[in-house]
């Protein structure tokens, strides 16, 4: 079941378009903002609201790689693996993160805190290699800098 808040937000979004289905991507983002991911049940609930079938809405959901159809951790780490980051050693960043977190790309840490995902281009080549945690971009990464960033998120939660 969608919360009243989610429903109001989605309806407000849908009101802006000639066809309700046009609000599909935004509606999924709204659900994801509230729940971190879009479950099958949420997908069906949104589909009803937008007068779509689950198949139609899931076609939209699965097209976008930042709509999560599986549970993710409390923080999602996106590591850029595009050209500039690749040239400037993204693989060592990825491997370091993997080791530090104890997960492979695509996995979530056992404590449910972090999900590590590869990402094709974060649009910050001047600061390569880069990663993004939730909505914050971090550039010119080194192992030491990564330690600091991760420590910040860990401290934030324990505080």
């Amino acid at each position: 079941m969608l919360t009243d808040e989610e429903r109001h937000e989605i309806e407000a979004e849908a009101a802006q378009y000639a066809y309700k289905r046009a609000a599909g991507p935004e509606a999924l983002k709204i659900v994801q903002r509230h729940r971190r991911w879009v479950s099958d049940q949420s997908l069906k609930d949104v589909a009803v609201l937008l007068e779509m079938t689950p198949a139609e809405l899931d076609g939209v959901a699965t097209f976008y790689n930042l709509i999560f159809r599986k549970p993710v951790g409390r923080h999602v780490i996106l590591v850029c693996d595009s050209v500039t980051c690749w040239v400037l050693g993204y693989d060592s960043v990825r491997d370091y993160l993997s080791r530090e977190l104890g997960v492979k790309p695509g996995e979530t840490t056992a404590d449910g805190r972090f999900t590590l995902l590869p990402m094709v281009c974060l649009g910050a080549c001047d600061r390569a290699p880069v990663m993004m945690v939730d909505d914050t971009l971090y550039g010119n990464l080194t192992p030491q800098k990564i330690d600091e960033i991760l420590a910040g998120y860990r401290a934030e939660e324990t505080a």
């Binding site: 099958d40 997908l43 198949a55 899931d58 076609g59 699965t62 097209f63």
Partner: peptide, 19 residues
Amino acid sequence: GRDFDVFQWHNYVYFGRQS
């Protein structure tokens, strides 16, 4: 028909039902 669609993208493009 509205119970059949395309999912995902690139090499993973999938034609079928939602379930």
